[in-house]
Write a protein that binds this DNA or RNA. Structure first.
Lengths: 79, 79
DNA sequence: TACCATTTGTCCGTATGTATG
DNA sequence: CCATACATACGGACAAATGGT
């Protein structure tokens, strides 16, 4: 799994956003399927939940995912 | 029918409580008559049952309705 | 009596939303 | 950025109560 460098010049949340973006582009995270929950991202990448949220927020702003309260965040199908 | 905005700053259960309060005030929901069941509220407003329950709880706290287990929740007559 | 459908009561697990150090 | 806490919301499961068959 792609690693995150907490030191490097790029903010962690941006690194995670890029990783998730690539996982979506590659089909690893498929349309209409949920991406890992914030808790899972936290565990899998060794980051704080707030940082995971921020990364997901980036993808929301890019319209790559849609979030449903109480359910999760899903990969948006291509129109 | 009045809509609920799952986003917006006001919690869904409060929005539903306000809607039901207005339906009672307008007479749409009449004294000694049942309000929609939790299952009906769930369907009609597209929310979870727990959220519907919470809205009804608000009205109970305001003494606007009375709930009978196994029967339903009824609009309280004005004293 | 024994079911049965409906409704409310309760509990659990999971996830997101927000706020504070 | 991290850590914590609490609120809000969804979904499922089962129990208790009610009224009818």
């Amino acid at each position: 799994m792609e690693e995150i460098d907490p030191l490097g010049p790029t903010p962690v949340y941006r690194q995670l956003a890029r990783i998730l973006r690539e996982r979506i582009a590659s089909g690893d995270l498929a349309p209409n399927r949920p991406i890992p929950s914030e808790a899972q991202l936290r565990q899998q990448y060794g980051i704080a939940r707030g940082t995971a949220r921020r990364a997901v927020q980036v993808l929301r702003d890019e319209r790559l995912v849609v979030t449903v309260t109480g359910r999760g965040t899903y990969v948006r199908p291509r129109p």
